[in-house]
Every structure is written in C-alpha cells, then in structure tokens.
Computed example of a mutant assay.
Amino acid sequence: MNSNNMLQEPTSVRGAGDIGGTNARFALWREARLESVEVLACADYPRPEDAVREYLHRVGQPLSAVENVCLACAGPVGDGDFRFTNNHWVIDRAAFRAELGLSHLLLVNDFSTMAWAASRLAGEELVQVREGTALEGRAKLIIGPGTGLGVGSLMPLPGGGWEVLPCEGGHVDLPVTGERDFAIWQLLREKYGHVSAERVLSGSGLENLYRLSCQVDGIEPLALSAAQIGERALAGDEYCDAVLEHFFLWLARVAGNAVMTVGALGGVYITGGIVPRFLERFQRSGFAEAFCTRGKTSGPYLSQVPVWVMTAKHPGLFGAGVALEQALLAEA
C-alpha cells in the first residue's frame, strides 16, 4: 500500500466503528473528535458492509468520503479475517476494503479501544476516585467489568505515542484475602473448577457473588440480574449493598495485582458497563483503601497510584478513532 495515499489532511473524515454481538456503533472521526454517532442492530443487516453503507446514507456521506476505517470488534483479532462470536457477521478484510473503496482498514479488539481512549480522554470524561500521582513514562492500566472482565495496558513509546498491550487478565486467579472470600471461592470452585477473576468481576459474576453470598449466609436468593442487584443496593437494600461493596473490594484487589504485574504507575482507568453505572456508590466504597492495603512492599508500591473511572459516552468509538489516527501516522 502506498503510504502517500493514506496521508490525509487534518480536516479529512475517517470512520470508526464499535461492533458487539447485538449492536454496531458507527461514527465519523474528524479533527480528533467523534461526529454523527449512530447505533444499528447487527441482526438487521446480512453483512457488515451493508451496515456501513446504511450508516453513511443516514449521515449524508457518499461512500467515497471515507477512505480509512477502524473497527473495534468483540473478540480476539488476528491478522486474518474476523468472525464475530455472538452475531452472524464475518469481516473478510480484502473484500471489505474492495467493496467500500477503503485505502486502510484497521481491526482491533474492542477492549483495546478502551485503552486507546484512556490515552486521550479529556478531564471532563474522567472521574478521579483515588488520589495519587501518575508517573510520566510509566504504563497505564485499563480494567473494565462488564459482560466479562477486560484488562489491558498502555505502554508509552518514544516520541509521545502509546502502544496498547491486550491480554487475558480477566482470567487470572481470583485473589482470596479473608474467610468470606474463601467461603465464596470454594463454592465457585465446586461450580466451575478454575476460579478466575471474571467469575466475580462481571455482570454474571455479580450475580454469582449475590447467589453464593446468600448460600454462605443461609438466605434464600431472589432471581436478580446484575442490574437489579445494583438498583436494589442504591434503593437501600442492605444485603444487595453489601454484595456490591464486596464486588468493589474484589475489583480493588485484582486491579492492584495487575498494576504490580505490569508496573502501571501511570494510573488506572476503570471502564465497562458496571462501575460507571453505579459511580456514586463506587465513590463511597472501600475500593481506594483496599487497592493498597497490602503487605510491606506491595502497599507502598501502590500508595500513590491514581485511579479514574471513564465516563465518556462512546469510549469504544473514541478509542477506535485514536487507534486509526496513530496507525496512519506510524505508516506515513
């Protein structure tokens, strides 16, 4: 590919997409900002190419207007074609580019775009939940309990850029620090065998934590979803509130362990569908203290690491735009 053809003027339009199992979000990326965000149902379109055409039609852009596109895809992204796990779409890279007339198509893992977003989000799109000092030139950690538990890191590059390092940090062993942790961990092991962090720190994990807490306490559990557990906690249900607090404390332990593993003294960014939804309650939780209440070495190491919650409306789309911007700059 001729890199000269990929260079764009600062005002040029690029395309960003964030595609999950149910919905595809698309936007235009112009001057480092998102424009014209639209959400389309994946089930309504036979192919992703059809959804892109419909999106451009809705926002009044001809197919020729967008030559460079980044799509955040739910699942592991390799060098070949991408088959979505939870919908019928397949992206054949060569065919997709040819049909839509693209000069450049970048596919990235959907959680990686959260890391790209963290490299650029403005102050009003972040809420600091733990004070500290982010060290220049050190890695940043991104962690997000949602459908699963996403974990990734941002590594600084010479010249001011960033490299995203995706990983499978949601599947590390769940840390156990007390008798109640151990009682719940034993029940999780009986059910699943290996007890990963994601068995608690996710939507289904919060449901696990509620049901097994009830079992430990000899209480008959209600058939509650993760959203309902959180809503009942906010409405004054003391038991659901205690479960949500336990969730936040476990998140503190897992996040702190990850910081020590990658040396992420540049700070922690929390995203995903759970913590931002219950942000006010999270701010009142014991997360900040539990994050660094550890041994004589690990506690001081973590004591000055700041933590933010990402509150941007479309962080996946924003991160896709940033990822494309940096990729085009690197290849210029």
Rank of each mutant, 00 (worst) to 15 (best):
D44H: 13
D237Y: 05
Q228N: 08
I274C: 09
T261Y: 14
E31S: 07
C73N: 05
S303K: 09
G203Y: 08
D237E: 07
E280F: 00
V309R: 00
Y301D: 12
A258Q: 14
A43S: 13
H88T: 09
S303I: 01
R284I: 07
M310I: 15
A139V: 03
A41T: 08
V108Q: 10
A72R: 01
I184H: 00
L56E: 11
E207S: 15
L40T: 10
R53M: 10
E49Q: 14
A117M: 04
L141H: 02
P158M: 01
L40A: 02
F182T: 05
L63W: 07
E325A: 07
F282D: 01
Y239W: 12
A65C: 08
D81Y: 04
G148M: 00
V77I: 12
P46R: 08
L224Q: 03
G193Q: 03
V39N: 06
G319Q: 01
G60I: 09
V66P: 05
V37Y: 07
E54N: 08
L105E: 10
T22M: 01
H171Q: 05
S3T: 14
Q215F: 10
P306D: 05
M260Y: 03
L34D: 10
S298N: 15
G273A: 06
F182I: 01
L105Q: 10
L201S: 06
N2P: 14
G20L: 02
G159R: 09
G20P: 05
L206Y: 01
A139N: 13
V66E: 02
N5F: 10
L328I: 14
L7I: 15
N2E: 13
S303Y: 00
F247Q: 10
G146M: 12
A134K: 07
S112N: 11
L265W: 14
D237F: 06
T293I: 02
L106S: 02
L234E: 15
V69A: 01
R97G: 15
K140I: 03
F282P: 12
D50V: 11
G101D: 09
L126W: 09
Y269H: 15
E67M: 06
A16P: 00
A252G: 01
C240H: 10
G161E: 04
W89G: 04
Q326M: 12
G236P: 12
G160D: 02
N257S: 10
G316M: 06
R53S: 07
F278N: 08
G75L: 04
G267A: 12
G75W: 00
V262W: 05
K140C: 14
G205H: 04
A327E: 09
G273T: 01
R97F: 06
G160R: 06
E179V: 12
C167G: 15
N4F: 13
C292K: 13
L7A: 14
H171G: 02
E163S: 12
V66H: 00
S119V: 06
S119H: 04
I219P: 00
L106D: 11
G236Q: 10
L126A: 11
V322A: 08
A24N: 01
A74P: 05
